[in-house]
Design a protein around this nucleic acid. Structure first.
Lengths: 175, 175
DNA sequence: GCTAAACGAGACAGGTTGGTCTGTCTGGGC
DNA sequence: GCCCAGACAGACCAACCTGTCTCGTTTAGC
């Protein structure tokens, strides 16, 4: 409920009143559970990390690819399907980071979750036996984020473009 | 005045009251000039396109590079300097697109201005004699946007990483 | 069956939002 | 001298914001 709303309209675009009236919960009950709206957003981000990053992207990519290298590239195949969905709403971590700024606690939390995504990539790179996985994962992440923004602009082929660049990046990090 | 405020804090983060009290203009005068806040933002975006895209990035990159290919790569040298600034506030077009959504008029305008940026890249690619400049510029733009987000996260080396990927992209688009 | 915690509904507070409207003042054309 | 467009200052509006508080009612533990 709150999940979809925050995903689609951002943090500032959804008020607690709307959240409460839609969820059929009382305001007092809401604030008993979450000390503030920001804490709800924090819980949303955590769920997003689990549900989207881990389950929808990483696990799915691992399932799709045979070798670790293929699993890495499969990230962009998952992205391609994701970009094509009509309820595509970009990456909440990026959205909230840019919306709140890197100083804000929610921006900081978003940065942390983005770092976790990079961690997953680095893990896959390790498994693939690539070199310099720290820099590899950072470059890889640039492709992921860039393609997401391009998809938000309407470029449905963005995942394919990023995948091509990603292939060259793998080539240059092989032993 | 409004320019810096919108750049740093986003559209929803700055109210008209603050704009007006800071600029020493009367509220009525403000609304005589701009029919709504959105129109002010539209004017801001146009100025951003001129001042930032055209003058700060494209012209500067053209000045820096000798050959057209070097000029293309110089975009990321300009980015490197830009990312290092302590008042770095990411790309207003991306910020506003994600903040308002692609349906909103301001989101649409942001998409248009991003397309203009891609047009500049395509123009440079033409001058460099590269092949398939349409797809080239779209891939290139992924690198630009991805590195900007990474810089917003705090990765100061993002421009360098993107530049490396960009080099490979050029290699694959040469005749 | 009793107590106590949790519940939904919603009034309320204090502040901010985008936007309108009423004034008063000033500068230039005639 | 007179007039009027446009400037400023700021009151004002309805709607919304986050967060608190008061109600009654429901539920759970013992």
């Amino acid at each position: 409920m709150a999940y979809e709303l925050f995903s689609r309209r951002g943090v500032r675009g959804v008020g607690v009143n709307e959240l409460i009236s839609r969820s059929g919960v009382a305001k007092a009950s809401f604030f008993r559970h979450f000390a503030s709206k920001d804490e709800l957003v924090l819980a949303f981000l955590e769920r997003r990390d689990q549900q989207w990053t881990v389950e929808a992207i990483v696990s799915e990519a691992r399932r799709k690819g045979g070798t670790p290298e293929e699993q890495l590239l499969a990230i962009f195949d998952v992205f391609a399907e994701w970009f094509a969905r009509d309820d595509f709403e970009a990456c909440s971590f990026i959205n909230i980071l840019l919306e709140m700024g890197s100083e804000h606690p929610l921006g900081q939390a978003s940065i942390d979750y983005l770092a976790r995504i990079r961690g997953h990539v680095q893990q896959l790179a390790e498994e693939a036996g690539l070199q310099d996985t720290e820099n590899f994962s950072r470059s890889w992440h640039i492709l992921m984020k860039g393609s997401i923004i391009s998809a938000a602009e309407g470029d449905l082929a963005a995942a394919g473009r990023a995948r091509q660049l990603a292939g060259w990046l793998i080539d240059h990090h092989r032993a």
